[in-house]
Design a protein around this nucleic acid. Structure first.
Lengths: 189, 189
DNA sequence: CGATTCTTTGAAAACAGTCAATCTGTGTGG
DNA sequence: CCACACAGATTGACTGTTTTCAAAGAATCG
């Protein structure tokens, strides 16, 4: 299973075989079956998880019990609760699998070592972080400035794969809409 | 003016006098008067700017000409368009001063040198970045899960100073509401 | 003081949420 | 293989919230 991760790091990050060998030494493989949890509220998010195959979501439970989805992840995406991961605080979120999922995980302590040892890896991760931040800024802008329909259309354009694989009611939750509203938007679009 | 910046870095970042001397060598002072721009759409955000005194906002112009405010900054906050700053792409946003503002700025190239040379500074900045990211995650969650009134109340609780110093119609823009709606929310709260 | 910016108010229209019922497809166990 | 349960999607009627438009009232600044 490591080979999927290696291919990704080679192609997207330009890492060498020596560097990959070093990373491999710390990498943990894990399978999470559909509807099973990778992380539950109250636990600490110790690992940064690369998704080799499958689909996950991170969500928070509101006071009336509603699920609010903060992010999705599919192949080639990373998944963790970065707030908990970086601070060591217990997570307020849950992460579970929407499909049977294969992960390659690195403990934060090991990740930190690798980042220090492999400048190329550090640069690559830094770029990912920057991009993740930009995306969240765009999402905020969309939330405060776009109509529900515009928000949905941007979502479909940016993430056609999510739209295909993820149930409507979860996309609605991600966009901050009721499923009924999203269902009607889809009909008129 | 550097002394305000130095005090901040000493207190919040634990930097030593030698380290401060190094930073001082790269620091540029700048004053931006009320209603004047620090950055305009199309320019590259080359500097990371520490606000020693005053108040600024970053906003984007929508297609119908509406201003959508992405962030505010006051004393002890940093201001830049980090998308442009990190990538070198022209900014899609504007930054202007809501009050006469004193800044201490570091060019990205110099900032990168300082981060490499001063591990304590790097750790400190890393923590700030983590926190900034967490805050934007919270804002997204609030946008997709809270009512307009809850969003406003969280804003007031988290940033009482903003609420005091910033005009209502700009807070409305930040929250994604019309000024009329926010005015009515304030009356009933 | 006059001009500009900011805030409030009312009324109508647009929008999204809720509730309840129904429909669809999928998969499981008898 | 069928019956049934279950997760997901849709629809209609109704309610509530937010926007829009228009006007006017404060506050601030030169």
């Amino acid at each position: 299973m490591f080979e999927v991760f290696a291919a990704y790091l080679r192609t997207k990050g330009g890492l060498t075989d020596e560097e990959l060998k070093l990373i491999k030494g710390f990498t943990i493989s894990k399978k999470v079956r559909k509807r099973h949890f990778l992380l539950q509220e109250g636990e600490v998010s110790h690992h940064n998880c690369f998704i080799a195959k499958g689909c996950m979501r991170m969500y928070r439970i509101g006071k009336n019990g509603t699920e609010h989805i903060l992010r999705f992840g599919i192949e080639d995406w990373w998944m963790a609760d970065y707030e908990s991961y970086n601070t060591g605080n217990p997570s307020k979120n849950n992460i579970d699998a929407l499909e049977d999922t294969d992960l390659l995980m690195l403990r934060k302590e090991h990740m930190d070592v690798l980042l220090k040892e492999i400048p190329r890896f550090q640069d690559f991760v830094k770029k990912l972080e920057t991009k993740t931040f930009d995306i969240s800024q765009d999402r905020i802008l969309s939330n405060i400035s776009d109509t529900a329909e515009e928000r949905y259309l941007k979502f479909v354009t940016a993430y056609p794969e999510f739209n295909r694989r993820i149930p409507l009611h979860m996309i609605a939750s991600f966009l901050g809409l009721s499923r009924e509203t999203l269902s009607r938007i889809r009909k008129n679009a």
